[in-house]
Design a protein around this nucleic acid. Structure first.
Lengths: 116, 116
DNA sequence: CGCGACTATTCGTATAGGCGTATATTCGTG
DNA sequence: CACGAATATACGCCTATACGAATAGTCGCG
């Protein structure tokens, strides 16, 4: 039911690559064609294409053909989803100290009472 | 200066691993010892230790010794930082269509005035 | 239609990193 | 101080994947 809290790992694996992260940050300033991305980030065209493909498969970017060029732009979905996932941690920071104390208290107890 | 907008890639690489992501989501419910993590996530103790080490080096978790056990808990810093980074994209979605139109218009131009 | 510009794909190579097994280390206890 | 429990580290193996070079595909244009 809470599908909103289920983060797609592909979003993170796509972002967790330096060059791809740079691409995303470049695209933040606006859409770009493949060659444009390659030139600005000083990488070769095939690498740009491959990384953009990975980003596209993760849904982070979309493509729009324009003559021979292909213009890539960011898609909000995965970013919003990631933000939603991050929000599930917001409540943790408040209860953090309390939870630690509590856990240290129960660490002696065997493992009983299956929680969730 | 604006270090807040500079996302540490280590945060993403640490999270972009299924088992580590599961660890983080488990720790969201509260701190856990290594063996506890290993048992709940059905992984072996060394793997749990290694993954927790990576998470710790990325600053996502902190350790607190308790007898022979070591209790790991989430640290808010990287999560907040990631959230701040995500916020830099919020303004993009609004200007998205506009930016695409604009880029398609300038795609013919060689390279207009090197930006920042 | 053939050519040039732009992009995607394929192939081989190198390396990062995850896993399992074994072992070292540390701490509390009697 | 010896022992057991809990954790960390070391080693070898194996897969995923990023890179470079070469090539194939696609589109507009004359």
């Amino acid at each position: 039911m809470n599908a909103a809290a289920t983060l797609d790992i592909a979003t993170l694996t796509a972002l967790a690559e330096p060059n791809r992260l740079r691409i995303v940050e470049l695209l933040r300033d606006g859409p770009r064609a493949v060659g444009d991305v390659a030139e600005r980030l000083a990488m070769r065209q095939p690498q740009a294409s491959k990384h953009l493909k990975v980003l596209a498969e993760a849904g982070l970017v979309s493509v729009r053909p324009h003559a021979q060029s292909r213009v890539y732009q960011l898609e909000s979905g995965p970013f919003r989803n990631l933000e939603t996932w991050l929000d599930t941690f917001s409540t943790v920071w408040d209860a953090r100290l309390d939870a630690l104390e509590h856990y240290l208290g129960t660490i002696r107890e065997p493992k009983e009472s299956g929680d969730a």
